[in-house]
């Protein structure tokens, strides 16, 4: 109650109408802030002529959509994107989920050190890392190589894919695991039937974030994958640099489709079953 009372020290906060009006102003400002760039993006994607100082494009057309879809590299890049990002997530599961379980449930020397050390890759400028990674990869013959691209994208998802599931495993009460053992489950069965399902929402969230981060990764892929492997974001960078604005806009919209689908999918999973029952939205 303390903060509310402090708020009421300002005169207009004592008037309910004023308070409601202020809330709406905040909501609108936030909406404006979030939606304006998106709206501009959509307008650009369909604009043919849009010159300053006009608020709206002078002419609309589907010309640039046509152009992008008939660009010979689009299909190839999409193929690269959709064959790298999911594999990155799969690899991250194999590497990070056991680590997350170990961080949460086991005690081993240097646990805290390793847990924090995962951040190391994020504490230096990314591009510097990519350059040194490229030097190493060059020696190992991983430049312009599919697995080289997968590995460089993997760097970005390690922290997400370890930290979030660790919190997920931490959130599973020991009592629930013990109750399962008491009912006759061996440790492996406890993991599959109780621990993993309960940590699954966090793993799902981490996977989505990891997929998006791998899917949108451009710098590392550009450095390691060049010249043969151009994923969609890499292609977009080169198109944005060389073609008018609508091309970038069209591409952004195309790139956000998988993300959008993933979020809808995640929402459906998270809001079904016991989670929904727990939140009372079932």
């Amino acid at each position: 109650m303390q903060p509310v009372r402090r708020l009421e020290a300002v005169w207009f906060m004592r008037v309910p109408q004023m308070r409601r009006a202020l809330l709406w102003i905040l909501v609108l400002a936030l909406g404006f802030f979030l939606l304006m760039p998106l709206l501009t993006l959509v307008l650009w994607a369909f604009a043919d002529v849009w010159r300053y100082p006009s608020l709206l494009p002078q002419m609309y057309s589907l010309k640039w959509w046509n152009w992008v879809f008939h660009n010979g590299n689009l299909g190839k890049s999409a193929l690269w994107s959709f064959t790298t990002a999911p594999v990155v997530v799969l690899l991250a599961w194999v590497i990070c989920l056991p680590a997350a379980y170990a961080f949460s449930r086991l005690n081993f020397p240097g646990k805290r050190f390793f847990f924090v050390a995962l951040l190391a890759a994020d504490s230096f400028p990314r591009f510097g890392i990519y350059i040194s990674v490229a030097t190493l990869f060059f020696q190992w013959g991983l430049i312009g190589n599919y697995w080289g691209v997968v590995l460089v994208q993997l760097i970005n998802v390690i922290v997400t894919m370890t930290w979030i599931p660790t919190a997920g495993f931490d959130g599973v009460p020991r009592e629930l695991e013990e109750a399962a053992r008491d009912s006759g489950a061996n440790p492996l069965q406890v993991f599959w039937r109780v621990t993993l399902p309960l940590a699954l929402p966090s793993i799902l969230v981490a996977s989505i974030l990891a997929f998006l981060s791998a899917f949108d990764e451009a710098q590392g892929t550009l450095v390691v994958g060049a010249p043969d492997i151009t994923t969609l974001p890499v292609l977009m960078y080169s198109l944005v640099a060389n073609y008018p604005e609508p091309v970038g806009a069209v591409f952004s919209i195309l790139l956000s489709i998988p993300n959008l689908l993933l979020l809808i999918f995640a929402r459906r999973i998270l809001l079904s079953g016991y989670l929904a029952a727990g939140f009372g939205v079932r």
Binding site: E175, L176, E178, A179, A180, S183, G273, G278
Partner: peptide
Amino acid sequence: TGMVFQRYTLWPH
């Protein structure tokens, strides 16, 4: 043996 715990007794999923 069968055990009944104080808290977090049922599997929520």
